[in-house]
């Protein structure tokens, strides 16, 4: 028999969980299942009445098409390049800021801006600054005697520019997490090492960096997941161009689904993206054990 107290407790837990659970089932689980079903069908909003299940036809078509492999390659390059740049810069700036004494609150405030600002507005500003003939970037290049660049017009350069803009927006994310990790760190081993004559740079790499790893792991996982599904920056800055040089999986799925209205194929793309994300994130997040309640009632 369940005691009245245990029954009360269980009723409370269920009641508290119910509203969000119902909503999340309706808004995320059901759409997900619908997406899976779409991906197994020929569903297109242009000819909705011809709906039929075509099973794995979409997936077969996708794995046979060069545009999918191209998009996957670009997505992976973009994600790795962006996260790598952000990680190195973010940790570096956090380390420098840790020892800085002047104007730290102001610097922190400024570093926060790229994260909070409406991405579309920031990206739009970058578009103006990157304009080949009138933009400030090419003007600066000319001042130092370098040839002007077609930042968004040539394939390799366009992808590199996207990485830079992404790094502008997201380096502060890694920097803030790394700075928080440094602030929470026990300084004693570091001081001991410096007493033994280790320079600040050596002691940072040997002592602080290893202790930062748990923080950086979280930062890199979150950032990679987000970079993998970047939309705003690419959509507004290049729209996937020139040609298909910056068309990531996300943009390809958007194009297929929302522009060409072939929902089945777009859903298949989205499902493949989801599977990649789940495999990558499960592997990391389960390991770092974020999901145990700390106090229990």
């Amino acid at each position: 028999m369940i005691s009245p107290a245990a029954r009360d407790r269980r009723r409370f837990v269920l009641l508290m969980l119910a509203p969000a659970t119902v909503l999340l089932i309706g808004l995320t689980l059901v759409p997900f299942i619908v997406s899976v079903l779409f991906s197994l069908s020929n569903f297109s909003l242009i000819t909705p009445d011809d709906f039929a299940f075509s099973w794995f036809e979409n997936y077969g078509k996708m794995f046979d098409s060069p545009e999918f492999w191209n998009a996957l390659r670009i997505t992976v390059i973009f994600t790795i390049a962006a996260v790598a740049v952000e990680l190195v810069l973010g940790v570096g700036i956090a380390a420098l800021l840790h020892f800085e004494t002047r104007a730290v609150p102001f610097l922190r405030l400024v570093y926060l801006l790229p994260l909070a600002i409406t991405p579309v507005a920031a990206v739009f500003t970058f578009r103006i600054m990157l304009n080949p003939s009138l933009g400030i970037f090419n003007y600066m290049l000319k001042q130092v005697g370098l040839p002007p660049q077609d930042w968004l017009g040539t394939p390799g350069m366009a992808l590199a520019t996207l990485v830079v803009v992404d790094a502008w927006q997201w380096t502060p994310f890694i920097m803030l997490i790394a700075a928080g990790g440094l602030a929470a760190m026990d300084e004693e081993p570091l001081e001991a090492a410096q007493m033994d004559g280790a320079g600040p740079i050596t002691s940072f790499f040997h002592h602080s960096l290893p202790m930062l790893f748990p923080y950086l792991a979280v930062a890199v996982v979150f950032r990679s997941i987000d970079a993998f599904k970047t939309f705003d920056i690419i959509f507004v800055l290049t729209g996937g161009g020139p040609g298909i040089a910056t068309r990531t999986l996300n943009l390809l799925a958007y194009k297929q689904g929302i522009e060409f209205l072939s929902m089945g194929y777009a859903a298949a793309l989205a499902i493949v993206m989801l599977i990649i994300t789940i495999i990558a994130s499960q592997a990391f997040l389960r390991r770092i054990n974020l999901f145990r309640p700390k106090a229990a009632l």
Binding site: P31, L45, M263
Partner: peptide, 14 residues
């Protein structure tokens, strides 16, 4: 973590 398109397409249709 879900890629937004995975949710967007059913949302759009519904």
């Amino acid at each position: 973590m879900t890629p937004p398109v995975a949710m967007l397409i059913p949302f759009f249709v519904v």
